[in-house]
Amino acid sequence: MKFSKHVLLPASMFLFFFPAYGYAYIDPGAGSSIFQSVVASLVVGFFVAKTAWGKIKMYLGRIIIRKKQKKN
């Protein structure tokens, strides 16, 4: 009780009155802000897989080049 009264409540009020807004002069739009969270969560898996695949291809490419250089 003392913890919630003396720590939690003031902390939550602090967060409420001092939100971490960016210094954007354009209106990002409530719907757009929420929507990009939705879309980003859908595409992040593909992005991670694409990035990982890119790194694997680069790594394999280096191995192939080294093997060719050794043969020559």
């Binding site: 971490a20 990002p28 802000s33 929420i34 969270s37 992005f47």
Partner: peptide, 13 residues
């Protein structure tokens, strides 16, 4: 804005 959090990885995606 605090209701719509977006990690940096998700933003890059």
């Amino acid at each position: 804005q605090r209701s719509c959090r977006l990690s940096r990885l998700a933003l890059e995606a």
